[in-house]
Structure formats: C-alpha cells, structure tokens
Amino acid sequence: MRYYFEKYPQDAEKVVINIKGAFKHGTGPTGSPEAIRASVEQALEGLGGAKAIDIFEMARVDPDTPVETSIKALAELVKEGKIGGIGLSEVNADTIRKAHAVHPISAVEIELSLFTPDPLHNGIMEACSQLEIPVIAYSPVGRGWLTGSFKSLDDLSPNDFRPKMFDRFQPEVFDQNYKLAEAVEKIAQSKGLKPAQVAIAWVARQGAIPIPGSTNIERVTLNSKLLELTDEDMEDLRKAQETFPVAGKRYGGAHEKLLNG
C-alpha cells in the first residue's frame, strides 16, 4: 500500500483507506487503549506518511475490554488527527449502539451475502440505518460459493484453506450448500450474467457496500460493475434461499466465538 501511494501520490485523495487492526493472530482481538494505540502507530509507520488512515477498524471486539473503553481510545486518536474515523467489524446491534454513543462510527463491516443474510434479520442493518452508519459487506459472493467456479470439493485445490477453516465447506454439508449456489447460477444465466454479478447486486440492494475480493484482473473488473436487480429477481432469489437453506456455521471453532453475534 505504501509503495503504491509513493509511486502514485495523486491517487491518495481518491480512495478511502480502511485499515483493520487491534488483533493478534493466535490470541485474538486486543481492545485495550494501549494495544489500540500501538496498532494505529504500527499502521501509520507502515504507510510512512504516503496516505492517511481514513478509518481505523477494530477487526473484532475484545471480549475482555468493554467496547466503550476501546472506542474512547480510538476517539482520542481521531482528536489527535492520527485517524479520520472509527470502524467496527463483526459486531451485533447492541455493540454498535454502545460504540456510537461514545463516538460516531464511520463504518461497520459485516459478512453479508445470499449465503449469509443474517444481518437483515438480527438488527444489525436496522441499527446502522437508524444511526446512518455505512455498512461494508465482506464476502458478498459467499466465500466463493456464488462465483460458479466449483461444483464439488474435488474442484478445489488441495491447498485451498476453505475446507480446512469453514464449516460450510465440510463434506457432510457441501452438496446441500451447492444447491443454493446452483439456483443462483441458474437465475444469473437467465439474465445473461455471472452468478457473482447477481450476488453482489443483491448485497448492494440491501443498502450495503459490497467489497468482493479477487486476484484475477478480469474478475475484479467484472465485479466492479454494479448491476440493478428487479423486484422479480429479488423474489426469485428469496425463494431460492428459502428452498435451499445453508448448512453449517459461518466460521466454526474458535473463530465463531469472536463474532460478537
């Protein structure tokens, strides 16, 4: 990131940088004031002044630190000009309201897709709408399920981390989950589209900002063109979700416990 903005300084003001931190792999979220400040300083050092931190986002909520304490520490960093705003990730509606009461929240990042519509029903989207907080939706294509790129576990590389990490890729539920992916693909084909385009458009229709990830240039270009879905399309997708329910937890294991759900 630093290299890019040093090479193309004219782009620094064209993008919003949302940096996730306050998290140590192996031990989890670190929400103490000292840990948060250290994480922000580390991010600033990495950027080397080439770009400001527009939003600093706690990657998860520290279960050992009240969220109000963490937000107060981040608010001090906003006041000092070290970050432009505060973001939250994987938080429930109650946590969002508690945090926003301490300092206005600039963005909330959650998993939202046809495979994971939970935020539409658990109060998260409602809270963000009421508080006028933008919602950033990660994994809008369901961790690859809605790309049409695989139909069985054998289609995945032996090095693919998903079967090792995520419940929904386990052999006992794979075929069940593929049914929804297949249904979305058929709807996409009827419109002359790729399933990922339909999946991303569905997320945007919910009022969120989809952030699909890819290392393929053609796919990045395709995913960047936001399409419109009709009410009829939305109803067809709703019926597909109802007919083919997703099996398995979003993460499973220790990671599931950090979701603040």
Rank of each mutant, 00 (worst) to 15 (best):
P63F: 06
D54I: 11
F23M: 05
A50T: 15
D62W: 00
A50P: 04
D54Y: 14
K24D: 14
A50D: 03
T30H: 14
A50V: 13
T27W: 04
T30A: 10
I53G: 00
R60P: 03
T30C: 09
H25V: 12
P63D: 04
H25C: 05
L47H: 05
R37A: 09
R60M: 06
D54A: 14
G49S: 06
H25Q: 13
G28K: 07
L47M: 12
G26M: 15
E57R: 01
G46Q: 06
P33M: 06
R37W: 09
L44W: 08
E57S: 13
P63M: 11
M58D: 02
I36E: 01
L44C: 01
G48L: 08
P29N: 07
Q42W: 15
I55Q: 00
E34H: 05
S32R: 14
G28Y: 06
M58I: 13
F56S: 00
I55P: 00
H25D: 01
I53S: 01
P63W: 08
G28N: 03
T27A: 05
I53C: 04
Q42G: 15
A43D: 10
E34L: 10
M58K: 01
R60N: 07
L47A: 08
F23S: 01
H25A: 08
Q42H: 15
S39W: 03
D62K: 03
A38T: 07
M58W: 07
V61F: 03
P29M: 07
F23A: 02
V40L: 10
R37K: 10
I36T: 04
T30P: 04
E57H: 11
G28I: 10
R60T: 02
F56C: 01
K24S: 13
E41F: 10
L47C: 03
A59L: 12
G49T: 05
V61D: 00
G49M: 14
G48P: 02
G26Y: 15
G28R: 07
E45D: 14
V40N: 00
E57K: 04
G26R: 12
K24Y: 12
I55G: 00
G28L: 15
D54Q: 13
V61N: 00
S39R: 01
E41K: 14
L47I: 06
R37E: 09
P29I: 03
A35D: 13
A59G: 07
G26Q: 14
I53V: 11
A59C: 08
S32I: 12
H25E: 09
A59W: 09
A43G: 12
P63C: 08
V40P: 00
V61Y: 01
I36K: 01
E45G: 14
V61I: 08
D54V: 15
P63Q: 12
D54K: 13
G26A: 13
T27M: 03
V40Q: 01
K24N: 11
G28T: 03
A52W: 10
A43E: 05
G28C: 07
